[in-house]
Every structure is written in structure tokens, then in C-alpha cells.
Simulated scan of single mutants.
Amino acid sequence: MHWLLFFAVVLKAVLFSTGGMGPLPSLHNDFIAYGWATEKEFTEALAIGQLTPGPSGLWVVSLCYLVAGLPGALLSCIALMLPPQLILLVQYGYSRIAGHEATQGVLDGVVLVIVSFSVLVLAEMLKSNGLEISLLVITAVSAVLAISRRVSANYILAVAALAGFIAN
């Protein structure tokens, strides 16, 4: 077993998920592809994770123990703890620079990049699903409301999803 690769795979799955069962698709895909785990080991790890008290993401430790023994379990524990530590480190750094004028400019730039990626994904979705006037109207209204910053993004998403559901 290549331990650095193992750690990187687990860290990637944990870092790009929302906790709980979030890492499951990524871990399943990678562990099966590398031949590290079987379907039975996934089933056992998920069962252990559901039976044991504590955070629901601890099934990852069980899986890594079944796959790679104690070293795998220890590496998975480190991988599970790194993202929250990274958030604390970023928050600490941000609190030190939040008052600087350039900070808001950088954050505005990051938001612009995220919005640009979202627009590209939306354009690809519209292109692949065909253009419908109702979806274009929902998109335009949502964009105007988001740009105005007068309506919470959560409300915009909820109403847009409902409108899209009703329109289709």
C-alpha cells in the first residue's frame, strides 16, 4: 500500500464533502478503482458507522481500518481532522486581515470567479437540456435578485427551484 496516496485519497474525499455520508461516492469510486476495498468492506464499514455512537463520518475510520489496518485508521483520523483545522486556520488569518481594504477586493474577486463558474455550468446545462423560455426567465430573475443583494441567496434558490419544478 502506498500510504501517501492512501492518505491523499481519503483527504480528498473528506475535504470535498459535507460530512456524514458525503465522502461515500468518492471513497467508493477510488477504493474500488485501486483495488483497496470490496463491496463487502464498504457494507461492513457503513454498518459499523451506523451502530456506533458519535459523528456519522466515523464510518470512514472503520472502512480504512478494514482496508489497511491500524495505519489506515490512523491516517483516516488525521484526514478527518485536517479540514476543520484548516477552516480554523483560515478564520484566524482572515480575522487578522479583515480590516484591510484589499481584503474586500480579493473577496469580491473570488465571488466573481465563483459566479463565472456557475454561469458556465448553467450555460452548459441549458445547452444540454435545450432552451426553455421559463427556465431563462427564472435564471434572469434570479440573477437580477442576486446582483441586487436585497434578497437572500437561500430564498432565491428555494423560489427558483420551486418555480422550475412548477414550470416543468
Rank of each mutant, 00 (worst) to 15 (best):
H2T: 04
W3N: 00
L4P: 00
L5N: 02
F6Y: 12
F7K: 00
V9H: 00
V9Q: 00
V9M: 00
L11R: 06
K12T: 10
K12Y: 09
L15Y: 11
F16L: 12
F16N: 01
T18Q: 12
M21I: 14
P23M: 03
P25R: 03
P25H: 02
S26W: 09
S26P: 00
S26N: 04
L27Y: 04
H28W: 09
D30F: 00
I32W: 01
Y34F: 07
Y34G: 01
E39T: 01
K40N: 08
E41P: 11
E41R: 09
A45G: 08
A47G: 12
A47W: 10
Q50G: 11
T52K: 09
S56C: 02
G57W: 07
G57M: 12
V60M: 07
S62R: 04
L63Q: 07
Y65M: 04
L66S: 12
A68S: 13
A68E: 05
G69I: 03
C77V: 15
I78K: 07
L80E: 05
M81L: 14
L82C: 06
P84D: 06
P84M: 05
Q85T: 10
Q85F: 15
L86D: 00
I87R: 11
I87L: 13
V90T: 09
G93L: 04
Y94P: 04
S95P: 03
R96E: 11
G99V: 00
Q104W: 05
L107S: 10
L107K: 08
V111Y: 07
L112I: 03
L112C: 12
V113E: 03
V113G: 11
I114Y: 03
F117G: 12
F117H: 09
V119T: 09
V119D: 01
V119W: 08
V119P: 01
V119C: 11
V121Q: 14
K127T: 07
S128I: 06
S128C: 03
S128Q: 14
S128G: 01
N129Q: 15
N129F: 10
G130S: 06
G130L: 04
E132F: 05
S134M: 09
S134Y: 13
L135A: 13
I138V: 15
T139Y: 11
A140M: 11
A140R: 04
A140V: 14
S142C: 07
I147T: 07
S148T: 09
V151L: 12
S152I: 02
S152Q: 15
N154V: 15
N154L: 15
L157C: 13
A158G: 08
V159H: 08
A160T: 10
A160Q: 11
A161K: 04
A161D: 06
A161H: 02
L162H: 05
L162R: 05
G164M: 06
G164L: 10
N168A: 13
